[in-house]
Amino acid sequence: MILNFPFITMVLVTIIGLCIILFRKNLLKVIMGISLIESAMNLFIVALDFKEGGIAPIFTLAPLEPGVEPAAAASAMVLPVPQALCLTSIVIAVATGALMLSFAMLIYRKYGTLDISKISRLNG
């Protein structure tokens, strides 16, 4: 049961983020909601391949005593692939967040407001 806590948290944070995107009027809050959903995604990816009693996959911390084979020490580690996926996802979230925030700044300068019901001047 306790191993399911990361997934329950991820679903709760995603639902909160979706409610923010749908129901808030300020553009900066919408961008913050998107950033919340991306953080929940990173939590989901890292929590995917967790082994109970595993250690961090760092070469210099491998528990290599004189009687233990390297393969057995390697299989006690948590899988490192989801950590690389999570790192890529964080980098993409940073780039997207920076782009959307600079768009929000330009819109404030040209339109004078950050209310999303007033920003939609293109219609038809």
Binding site: L27, V30, I34, T96, L99, M100, F103, A104, L106, I107, R109, K110, Y111, I119, S120, R121, L122
Partner: peptide, 12 residues
Amino acid sequence: GFAVEAALKYAV
């Protein structure tokens, strides 16, 4: 500012 609004919708 029109193009920036379109780009913001596309980015979201």
